[in-house]
Design a protein around this nucleic acid. Structure first.
Lengths: 165, 165
DNA sequence: GTTATTGCAAATGATTTGCACAAGG
DNA sequence: CCTTGTGCAAATCATTTGCAATAAC
C-alpha cells in the first residue's frame, strides 16, 4: 500500500478537527490493500478479517471520509451498487471499460480523451472539474472465437467481476 | 411527443408476448411529455395527474419495460437517484454536463468524443456498445461575475435541477 | 475531562415482490 | 377463458442514524 495514503487521510482528518483512530487505520489499510474495486460490503468483509468486532456503520462512515478526502472515488458500474475505486491516486484521470460479456472492468488512461472533453467543456462555458467516462463493450475475441480470454487484463487493474444481485 | 415512441413500445411488447394496456400508454405518454429527465417518483407524480389510481409498482414495472425497449436510458447524475433520460431517441449519443454550482444538467453531442472513445475501445480489443460520459464542471460566468446565468440552457435540454435529498 | 468515535439495533428510502382481483386478446 | 397486468401492502436491500458506551487527545 502506498504509504502516502494514511498520511493524506491523517492530514485531512486533523484539518477537520477529527481524530485518528485504530479503527480508521484498519479500514483504510483494508481499502488500499489491493488495487481492486470494492463495494461497502466487500470492504466490511476485509475489515472483519483484521478486526472481528468492526461494524458496518463505521465502514460506511469511513468510506465517506475517504471519498471526501479524495483518496477514493465512487464509480457506477451499472450493477446497482456503489463501487469504490482506490486507483485514482496513482492514475487521477483514468476511465473504465466494462465488458458486457463477463463484467470484467478494465481501467485505461487516455490523454486525448481528457483533453477533448476539457475543450468541449470550455466551449460550453464551463470550467472542467471532473469527468467520468464508462464504456460498455463486448469482447471481440469472444465474438470471433467463442472465448473471452481478457488477454490484457493482467496488464491492467480493476479486475473485479460484476457480482450477481 | 414523438409518435414513434408508443409504436416502438408496442412492437417491443408484442414481440415479448405481452399486452398493450391503457395504464402503460398513460405512463409512456407521461414519460415523454417533456424532454426533461425524471426520477421514478417524479414520473409517478405526473402519471397520477392523469390517473389518480395508478400505483408506484406499475410505474416501476413500466420503467423497466421502457429501458429494455431502448426508449429510455438510466443515467447517474450523482445524486443517489436513478434518473431517466427520454432524449436518447432523438440524440442517441449525447452526453451530460452537470454544473457543480447549480446542479443543472446540460446535454451535448460531440462526434469527436464518440469517435475517439470508439477508437480507444477497439485498441483495447473490445467492440464498442455504449459509452456514458458525465462531465462535472463549474460555471465560468459564476466564478468571474458571481452569477450563474446558464445562458446556453435555453438552447439545450436536460433542464432538471438536482433535488436535495 | 471533554469531545469525537464506535457498535448496535432501529430507521430510512428507493425499489421489488406476493397475491387476489381486473382486464386484454 | 386463459394469461398477463394492476394495486395494495409487505418485503427487501443498501445505507444512515440515534444512542449509550468507549476511546482520543
Amino acid at each position: 500500500m502506498d504509504p502516502e495514503v494514511l498520511e493524506r487521510l491523517d492530514t485531512f482528518i486533523r484539518k477537520k478537527g477529527l481524530r485518528r483512530t485504530g479503527q480508521r487505520d484498519v479500514i483504510v489499510r483494508a481499502a488500499f490493500s489491493t488495487d481492486e474495486h470494492f463495494t461497502a460490503d466487500e470492504l466490511f468483509d476485509r475489515v472483519r478479517k483484521t478486526d472481528a468486532s468492526a461494524s458496518r456503520a463505521t465502514v460506511y462512515r469511513t468510506l465517506l471520509l475517504m471519498v471526501e478526502a479524495g483518496l477514493l472515488r465512487e464509480i457506477e458500474l451499472g450493477d446497482n451498487h456503489k463501487t469504490y475505486d482506490p486507483n485514482f491516486i496513482e492514475k487521477p484521470a483514468h476511465n473504465h471499460l466494462v465488458c458486457i460479456d463477463c463484467g470484467r472492468v478494465t481501467e485505461f488512461e487516455d490523454t486525448h480523451i481528457e483533453l477533448l472533453n476539457d475543450c468541449v467543456t470550455r466551449r460550453l462555458g464551463f470550467r472542467p472539474v471532473r469527468q467520468t467516462l464508462k464504456i460498455e463493450a463486448g469482447c471481440e475475441q469472444l465474438r470471433l472465437k467463442g472465448r473471452c480470454p481478457n488477454l490484457i487484463a493482467t496488464r491492467l487493474s480493476g479486475k473485479r467481476l460484476r457480482k450477481k444481485r
